[in-house]
Design a protein around this nucleic acid. Structure first.
Length: 511
RNA sequence: GCGGGAGUAGCUCAGUCGAUAGAGCAUUAGCCUUCCAAGCUAAGGGUCGCGGGUUUGAAUCCCGUCUCCCGCUCCA
């Protein structure tokens, strides 16, 4: 089956079996926003638990927090998000290329400057040692004319930028007859502001309201709580702070189902270390995180590291964990060595000292940070991509989600072979006993084979069937999803057999 | 954002020249009682994505719009 078809089928399967629905579907949907259904939410919660426990339970020097989505707006100035994500963009209709409007105008300014400089150079050659550049610049007609042009344009440009006047920016591009370097035409669209961050207002009156943003990443909530956690938790370097939470980005192009959404959930851990040791920790976390992925058993060959050649301004090392999705190798998790950039920025903007006193060195410094950041939704899609499979049987095909039992939404279904002879009652009793430990389902409708298929389709790893023999000896059959094999066991054994297989402990042992 | 494709029942899709909206699967109820779908009977489920136009009459023709998919573009 073509990979593309597989992806389409997966998306349809997600909807049909209550994993993922499009947001606001009855109102025609909302772009790149999705809801999780009754099975989706279970899987998602299980993924989050797998991550959280593997970070917080398994590392005594990692603790968790849950910071608010609203944060002081200055935080986003400090982090660089306000400046970096407020570009006025314009498209050329002929070449279909997109440019930053401000960059186009800056280039135009540079051109004028070039002209002036060439004029000055020429004159310098002509006059030799006797050349007085200052005087030349103040008196030469052509230079003056260009300088005037430059000043006028620069003032106009600066004013338009300050006012946030997009129409004026476009008018400047039109008036300056700036052409697209590819198509050479002046066929421009409107200038649009692409703001990555969603904003809203906090405060009851419009006048006194504070413009606040929905966080575009959860990391800053950790950085601004560094001191709180370090001091109240008596944390010693190196230590980490983990957090799971929603983040929001107004993506220009949001595609590929839940792979890139406007509202998404991150699982991030910021690990604070002594400066100079960050690359060692970077390597350690790289290994730990890759093991975490591989422990799920989807095949080591489907994972790889992708090393960033071009680093973000805050980083001195960065790598992605990529998984082989039906649409190619794509990033699931990022591991970044963020240096002391974030904490230093917050020192600067807040005016508070954000340091660590190192008793060994008897001095204080700003810790360096190694970040591991994974998208819950991507992880969710990764698990489903890996788990979805269509199997050819003798007279039939079956669609089965081979989700690792520990992550599966429903752990077991209890099925009376027929709905009489007291079998349903026994099945109910088994559920009443096991429902405190596992998410169980009861089903008595249709043939037993059909019921198995229904459970396969949502990824239930175990089906327990009550039959006439159960009446005699309290034994049931347990049918395994992946092998379709069955074995007969005592009802009293169910809890330990299933419990053993859905335990996080077994996974953690592999990390 | 640009270009291409698509949108009809929960899912997959048919629907002729413009004239009462269909099938299979799924769902629900009942029958049957059988360890790997597709047995029998019945029922429910649709403003044909949405809005407007042409027409006596629109799922069908035209315009707009929304959403999804593919490619480009972008990607801290």
């Amino acid at each position: 089956m073509a990979q593309e078809d597989l992806f389409k089928k997966l998306v349809a399967h997600c909807k049909e079996y209550g994993y993922v629905f499009q947001s606001s579907e009855i109102y025609d949907g909302l772009g790149a926003v999705y809801d999780y259904g009754q099975n989706g939410v279970e899987l998602k919660n299980n993924i989050k638990k797998y991550w959280w426990d593997s970070m917080v339970l398994l590392h005594e020097n990692v603790v968790g927090i849950d910071s608010a989505i609203f944060m002081h707006p200055t935080i986003w100035k400090a982090s660089g998000h306000v400046d970096a994500f407020n570009d006025p963009l314009i498209d050329n209709k002929d070449s279909k290329k997109r440019y930053r409007a401000d960059v186009l105008i800056e280039e135009q300014l540079a051109k004028i400057e070039d002209k002036i400089n060439k004029e000055v150079e020429k004159a310098a050659k002509r006059f030799g040692d006797a050349f007085d550049e200052k005087q030349f610049r103040e008196t030469n007609a052509r230079v003056l004319e260009n300088q005037q042009k430059w000043d006028a344009l620069h003032n106009r440009f600066a004013k338009a930028l300050n006012d946030g006047n997009l129409d004026e920016l476009r008018q400047i591009i039109v008036d300056e007859e700036i052409v697209c370097p590819i198509s050479g035409t002046r066929n421009w669209t409107e200038v649009r502001q692409f703001n990555l961050m969603f904003s809203t207002e906090m405060g009851s009156t419009a006048d006194g309201a504070l413009k606040v943003y929905l966080r575009p990443e959860t990391a800053q909530g950790i950085f601004v709580n560094y001191l709180n956690v370090q001091k109240t938790g008596r944390m010693k370097l190196p230590f980490g702070i983990a957090q799971i939470g929603k983040a929001f980005r107004n993506e220009i192009v949001a595609r590929q189902f839940i792979f890139r959404m406007r509202e998404f959930e991150q699982m991030e851990m910021q690990f604070f270390v002594k400066p100079g040791t960050e690359l060692d920790w970077f390597e350690k976390w790289k290994t730990t995180r890759m093991n975490w992925h591989k422990a799920l058993g989807f095949g080591d060959e489907n994972y790889r590291f992708h090393v960033h050649e071009k680093l973000a301004h805050y980083a001195n090392a960065a790598v992605d964990v990529e998984y082989k999705f039906p649409f190619g190798f794509k990033e699931v998790e990022g591991i970044h060595s963020r240096t002391d950039f974030d904490l230093s920025q917050h020192e600067k903007y807040s005016g508070k000292k954000i340091r660590y006193f190192d008793p060994e060195l008897n001095e204080s410094y700003v810790p360096f940070v190694v970040e591991t950041s994974i998208g819950v939704d991507r992880m969710f899609l990764q698990v489903l991509s890996a788990a979805y499979c269509e199997e050819q049987l003798e007279n039939d095909t079956r669609v089965v989600l081979k989700i690792p039992p520990v992550l599966a939404p429903v752990k077991l279904a209890v099925l009376p072979l027929v709905k009489k002879d007291g079998l349903p009652e026994i099945a109910r009793r088994i559920i009443d006993d096991l429902k405190f430990e596992f998410n169980c389902q009861y089903d008595e409708k249709d043939s037993i084979g059909k019921r198995y298929r229904r459970q396969d389709a949502i990824g239930t790893p175990f089906c327990v069937t009550v039959d006439n023999q159960t009446l005699e000896d309290n034994s049931v059959t347990i049918r395994y999803r992946d092998s379709m094999e069955q074995e007969r066991v005592a009802i009293s054994q169910l809890s330990s057999i299933i419990g053993q297989q859905v335990s996080y402990k077994n996974l953690f042992a592999k990390i």
